[in-house]
């Protein structure tokens, strides 16, 4: 399955994609903010899972999530991976349509566990 990773840090994008590789997910596309993320989704309609950061320039992860739900409905799973660790943030994200929430810093095990149910 094709997975879109959106994070303004190239290091974080690589950490996530390296972890995905270890569980056999090699088909990955990446973007550095929500605007690029939307463009990526347009040009890659076969993306089946989105992993998105929250704090990013141009369009942040929450606005990106809202935009995905507006334009693509509820079928595309979106998992937030962010350093925003407060309950209020988690609630906001889930209410806005996030399918799961991962707090940075994370271990590869946590990432696998939270992403696992959405993998094909």
């Amino acid at each position: 399955m094709k997975i879109l990773i959106v994070d303004d840090s190239s290091t974080m994008r690589r950490i996530i994609s390296n972890t995905l590789k270890t569980i056999g997910q090699e088909n990955v596309v990446m973007a550095g903010d929500g605007v690029e993320g939307m463009a990526m989704l347009e040009s890659n309609p076969d993306v089946e899972l989105v992993l998105s950061d929250w704090n990013m320039p141009n369009m942040n992860g929450l606005d990106f999530l809202v935009k995905i739900r507006e334009t693509k409905g509820k079928d595309l799973p979106v998992i937030m991976i962010t350093t925003e660790a407060e309950k209020a943030n988690v609630i906001t994200a889930i209410k806005s349509g996030a399918n799961n929430y991962i707090v940075k810093p994370f271990t590869p095990e946590v990432l696998q566990e939270k992403i696992g149910p959405f993998l094909k």
Binding site: S9, N55, T83, E84, K104
Partner: peptide, 16 residues
Amino acid sequence: DGVGEIINMIAGQAKA
């Protein structure tokens, strides 16, 4: 970039 992400995570954890 990695150093930026380190301070991002430190700040985010402390914030919470």
